[in-house]
Amino acid sequence: MSEVLLQQIERLAADAKTKSTQLHKGETMIEIEQSQLKNFITRLVNQIKIRHLSTITGLDLGQNIGIIYHFWRDRNTIHLKTFVPKTKPTTVSIVDIIPGAILYEMEIHDMLGVMFVGNPWMDKKLLLPDNWPDDLPPPLLKNVKPADIRKRLGLEVEKK
């Protein structure tokens, strides 16, 4: 079962001109181009029937922001990793394929400032406060210090 699934995934990855690496037992990591992403996920959902998206993780990787889609079925976890440049953090939304991704995309938009084109709620905030200043950088970027944010928002309390 698992072998068959892995072969299928490898074939899919080959079609998307990338390959899959085995991270740990039962965990597959696939790095994929942004342009191939939607096609890949559509085929993952419709052909291999891996329908459950656990979550989407956003990572600050220096030059880029990594976005990892975590899927699983039975004992297999598939991490689908794509990169968006920090200078132009825009990617495609997968809400039309997996509607359950809507809140995860909003979360990454709040926390890392990535724009998901096609997500209907991109203009709303989910986690950040309403009075979050527009010129403040997204808080989960590595160069943002919590102390600076607290100062900007006027929340800095004096340390005893």
């Binding site: 905030k125 989910l126 950040l128 808080p139 989960l140 590595k142 919590p146």
Partner: peptide
């Protein structure tokens, strides 16, 4: 229904780093 969460968001993921 439009949700708005995060009122008790404490930044755990940032703190963990």
């Amino acid at each position: 229904v439009i949700p708005r969460i995060g009122y008790v968001h404490r930044g755990l993921e940032k703190a963990a780093e």
